[in-house]
Amino acid sequence: MGTNSFLKVLPEMVTFLRVAELGSFSAAADLLGMTPSAASRQVKRLEKEIGVQLLQRTTRQLRLTEPGTEAFARCRELVLAAQGTMEIGQQYAKKPSGRVRISAPRAFARRVLHPLILSFLARYPEVDVQLIVEDRDIDPIQEGVDLVVRLTPNPPEGLVARRLMMVEHILVASPGYLASGAAIHHPRDLGAHRCISLGEHERDNRWRFKRGDEEAEIVVQGRYIANHTEIRLDAARSGLGVACLQMFVAQQALDEGSVTRVLPEWEFQGNYRGHAWILYPPSRFTVPKCQVLIDHLLDALATGRGKKLNASSTRRAPPRATN
């Protein structure tokens, strides 16, 4: 291939990238505004120019060949560079403007992000925000999202990761429930109580705790299992038992007194511990509209609100009721 001959297949590289990302000629064609047959012809033309097969085509799926995998990585770099070039003008704009698309898990989006986005919109009137609430992992490059919030101990490679806050898990129950049952001073006391657990995996009913050098593990049981944090919170408020929740979900109920923290001196070693991270594609430049939102979230969560969402409540379980 000549020095400048790659210029004539730049569109074909973009089409190949989208086909490989989406695993479908039809889906890529819809995204690019062409027919599936046109998308197929462009990929074949690219393969002819390069001289190797990039995709293995079957009636059920598309699969990258070994050279196709390398070409995919190079084409992705090319598209990212092109997107960065198109955004250079915004780097020098006096005011951040435009729309930022940000995704986050449901509970975190509702309890943490939403209030902060409201204050952000008031502060930056030229920037709009589209909040995409999804519990699944979203690929910002493939799905066209500017920023992604993910709760994990290990952020994925290939993306810039900024830590927003620690995600602390705690136990709560209603004051009425705690007053009517056996006192809970040690994790082993949970064996005599109804516990509201996640229930997505068998290990979710094995609750582990740590206090200094002391560790404890207890198999819990209860009448209600739910894989949604807001539902577990509501069940705890209703007196159904002791629920495991993220601190940011339970904080308002703790402040209101509708639930009380259980075993506050023990660290709950949940299966989903970690931090909340804000993720975005690597680039030499971060466009102003994204940068100001990132900075706003980091500043807010590093100060009062972030500390409150992870602060240990001083509200203790009431003493056991006596007859």
Rank of each mutant, 00 (worst) to 15 (best):
residue 26 S to L: 06
residue 26 S to M: 07
residue 26 S to H: 12
residue 27 A to M: 03
residue 27 A to I: 02
residue 28 A to D: 03
residue 29 A to E: 07
residue 29 A to Y: 07
residue 29 A to I: 10
residue 30 D to P: 00
residue 30 D to C: 04
residue 30 D to R: 14
residue 31 L to E: 15
residue 32 L to M: 11
residue 33 G to Q: 06
residue 33 G to S: 05
residue 33 G to I: 04
residue 34 M to S: 11
residue 34 M to Y: 05
residue 34 M to H: 04
residue 35 T to D: 14
residue 35 T to C: 04
residue 36 P to Q: 11
residue 36 P to G: 10
residue 36 P to D: 10
residue 36 P to W: 07
residue 37 S to A: 15
residue 38 A to F: 05
residue 38 A to M: 02
residue 38 A to W: 01
residue 39 A to H: 02
residue 39 A to P: 03
residue 40 S to V: 05
residue 40 S to Q: 15
residue 40 S to R: 15
residue 40 S to D: 12
residue 41 R to S: 13
residue 42 Q to M: 10
residue 42 Q to G: 01
residue 43 V to D: 03
residue 43 V to S: 01
residue 43 V to Y: 01
residue 44 K to A: 14
residue 44 K to Y: 08
residue 44 K to L: 09
residue 45 R to P: 00
residue 45 R to Y: 04
residue 45 R to Q: 12
residue 46 L to D: 03
residue 46 L to I: 05
residue 46 L to V: 07
residue 46 L to M: 11
residue 47 E to D: 05
residue 47 E to N: 01
residue 47 E to A: 10
residue 47 E to W: 02
residue 48 K to A: 15
residue 48 K to M: 09
residue 48 K to E: 15
residue 49 E to S: 12
residue 49 E to P: 00
residue 49 E to I: 00
residue 50 I to K: 02
residue 50 I to A: 06
residue 50 I to S: 03
residue 51 G to L: 02
residue 51 G to E: 12
residue 52 V to M: 10
residue 52 V to H: 11
residue 52 V to G: 00
residue 53 Q to Y: 04
residue 53 Q to G: 10
residue 53 Q to W: 01
residue 53 Q to S: 14
residue 53 Q to H: 04
residue 53 Q to E: 12
residue 53 Q to T: 15
residue 54 L to E: 05
residue 54 L to G: 06
residue 55 L to I: 13
residue 56 Q to G: 05
residue 56 Q to P: 00
residue 56 Q to H: 08
residue 57 R to M: 03
residue 57 R to A: 05
residue 57 R to T: 13
residue 57 R to I: 14
residue 57 R to G: 04
residue 58 T to G: 01
residue 59 T to M: 00
residue 59 T to W: 04
residue 59 T to R: 09
residue 59 T to N: 09
residue 60 R to H: 13
residue 60 R to L: 09
residue 60 R to I: 05
residue 60 R to Y: 13
residue 61 Q to K: 15
residue 62 L to N: 02
residue 62 L to Y: 06
residue 62 L to G: 09
residue 63 R to C: 04
residue 63 R to Y: 06
residue 64 L to F: 09
residue 65 T to N: 09
residue 65 T to L: 09
residue 65 T to S: 12
residue 66 E to W: 08
residue 66 E to K: 04
residue 67 P to C: 08
residue 67 P to N: 07
residue 67 P to S: 11
residue 68 G to E: 06
residue 68 G to A: 08
residue 68 G to I: 05
residue 68 G to P: 03
residue 69 T to Q: 15
residue 69 T to H: 09
residue 70 E to K: 14
residue 70 E to N: 11
residue 71 A to E: 11
residue 71 A to S: 07
residue 71 A to V: 12
residue 72 F to R: 02
residue 72 F to I: 02
residue 72 F to E: 01
residue 73 A to M: 07
residue 73 A to L: 13
residue 74 R to H: 13
residue 74 R to A: 15
residue 75 C to F: 12
residue 75 C to L: 00
residue 75 C to K: 00
residue 76 R to H: 03
residue 76 R to G: 10
residue 77 E to W: 03
residue 77 E to L: 11
residue 78 L to I: 07
residue 78 L to R: 04
residue 78 L to W: 04
residue 78 L to Q: 07
residue 79 V to Y: 08
residue 79 V to A: 13
residue 79 V to R: 05
residue 80 L to Y: 06
residue 82 A to Q: 12
residue 83 Q to Y: 10
residue 83 Q to K: 10
residue 83 Q to P: 00
residue 83 Q to S: 11
residue 84 G to F: 01
residue 84 G to N: 11
residue 85 T to K: 01
residue 85 T to W: 07
residue 85 T to Y: 13
